[in-house]
Design a protein around this nucleic acid. Structure first.
Lengths: 166, 166
DNA sequence: AAATGTTACTTGCAATTAGCAAGTAAGAAA
DNA sequence: TTTCTTACTTGCTAATTGCAAGTAACATTT
């Protein structure tokens, strides 16, 4: 466990993995604008570290030569149970903005949620499994039930406090 | 999740929780000598933060007035699934010194392991569930199979590299 | 083709945090 | 009464983080 925590024992690494896994993030700027505001140098550093640890890969492909595609490896997608338990723990014990019907469903159907997560990964399904939940529901614009996402068309607002935090 | 990672999104907090949960740690110096070598000021800070987050409690009781007893709260013991998945992930993907029969057993019997962990917590069972695994097996002195521990009678060797890391 | 915009980063610097060694106060043991 | 233990704190240095401002490579617009 201490070896594992050397890799993602920090504020950001697991959030990056979560963004890859449950939101549909592929590109650098998507992580940058991802709610909680990681600094760009730290993001670059974490992506490098995650790649070095074999948790993500970076493919510079696609027709647009600027863009880089980040993707989870098998080792990375195997973190899904950890992320799920962390999400459920947070939903139970901290006030996240996560709707409790969804959380109850995920808690009762862990295996199905994990299977769906892995399916989305292997099929490169780009739709987010979960949207970014808002802490204060009045500024949530449209929240789909599950796996039918608002395509993450988020403005680049900085959200200095009380931002999204599933 | 980002709220949760604000609490234990660092190198040490989850290791402290693990020491409380699966090794039998109660006292300050036990954490200090716990293999991976946390600095004393950082340990004091993390214990304070974990207490503030409601994950552990500190009782200054016991007949010896110097000693402080650290203990997981319900919220803290609810982290068991997260820790278990992290342990299993590490055993699968990183070379921890964890014997793979034990890991296979835990992977196949998650519910039983979690039930036993919670039982030990509620009954204040002080015996370690898992010993500190060694990376290089030649300096492992005696490794019990499961939940029948070597009472953590460890020398206070500093283990500067390649130490114990379940 | 030139100018402008995008994307994925660096670089430099201030502020926070981690790590180390050395204390110290309260209590217990010799 | 001295010495030992335990759970810390304090001071200092080194590393890490966060912010703002670049920059190189490509793409798009005019």
């Amino acid at each position: 466990m201490s070896v594992s925590l050397e890799i993602f024992g920090d504020r950001w690494s697991l959030l990056i993995v979560r963004d890859l896994m449950v939101r549909g993030h592929r590109a650098y700027k998507e992580f940058l604008g991802s709610g909680e505001g990681i600094a760009t140098n730290v993001l670059a550093d974490r992506l490098r570290a995650l790649e070095a640890a074999g948790i993500i890969t970076t493919e510079a492909k696609e027709k647009d030569g600027r863009r880089v595609n980040y993707r989870l490896t098998e080792k990375g997608i195997d973190l899904a149970p950890v992320l799920l338990e962390l999400l459920l723990w947070g939903a139970k014990h901290e006030e996240t903005g996560a709707p409790c019907e969804i959380m109850a469903h995920m808690a009762a159907n862990r295996a199905a949620v994990l299977a769906e997560t892995r399916r989305r990964w292997s099929e490169r399904d780009p739709a987010p499994l979960l949207p970014p939940f808002q802490s204060n529901p009045e500024d949530a614009q449209h929240r789909p039930p599950i796996s039918k996402g608002s395509k993450s068309s988020r403005t680049k607002s900085k959200q200095p406090k009380g931002g999204s935090k599933p």
